[in-house]
Write a protein that binds this DNA or RNA. Structure first.
Length: 197
DNA sequence: TCGAAGATTGTCT
DNA sequence: GACAATCTTCGAG
């Protein structure tokens, strides 16, 4: 298993971090056990000038971690049903983050299956922001934590070539949808398909 | 204090 | 493909 990505890794251009997070391993340790997966899909949210970013409406109690140090987690509850996990990037005062939209299970797969339920099969285990959070056991208690220590860490994975990475418009939002800030591993079957209709 | 909207998912048609 | 579920946050009254 690779080294834990240092805080410096996140203290760069958000698009760069989003691109290089592909292939990295996210690992979550809970009392029930440890589960981890390779990141195969990310989206960049780049500050107050990005109308789709939560920070576009200004600093609130909810978006406070976005304004914090690079390398923090930002976990938020959406639609009253699902959690979404982000890694905060850039220096303090510039609120941007990378949304992890899909992972490929690597470890603790039985644990993920038991959390997601017996009916869930195949790629449905983790091919969406809400799904991967449930599978890994991420919830509100994981918000605003350092990603350099447990329970939640991101480890270096295999390095990818440019031709392994596809860039496209973001998914599931209503503002600035056409901005090419979505990064996926080309051809990976675990990539989320939400919104690709 | 109330109403509206949201970086989604599961289920039904 | 369409729609409901369900909660947190924000802005208006």
């Amino acid at each position: 298993m690779g080294r834990i990505l240092p805080r410096d890794f996140f203290d760069r251009e958000t698009e760069t971090v989003a691109r290089e997070m592909l292939g990295a391993i996210i690992e979550c340790r809970t009392p029930e056990g440890t589960a981890g997966g390779m990141i195969v899909e990310t989206e960049a949210y780049v500050g107050e000038h990005d109308p789709a970013c939560h920070a576009a409406v200004g600093r609130t109690k909810r978006t406070a971690p976005l304004y914090g140090r690079p390398g923090l987690s930002y976990v938020y509850f959406i639609y009253g049903v699902h959690w979404c996990f982000n890694a905060v990037t850039r220096e303090e005062g510039l609120p941007s983050a990378v949304l992890v939209r899909a992972i490929e299970p690597v470890s603790g797969i039985d644990l993920m299956r038991s959390r997601r339920g017996p009916k869930v099969q195949g790629v449905n285990l983790t091919n969406g922001p809400g799904k991967l959070c449930e599978a890994l056991g991420i919830d509100g208690s994981m918000n605003d934590l350092s990603l350099q220590k447990y329970p939640l860490v991101i480890r270096a994975g295999e390095s990818l070539l440019d031709e392994d990475i596809a860039v496209g418009p973001r998914v599931g939002i209503t503002k600035a949808v056409e901005w090419p800030l979505r990064f996926v591993i080309r051809g990976n079957q675990w990539v989320s398909r939400a919104g690709s209709r």
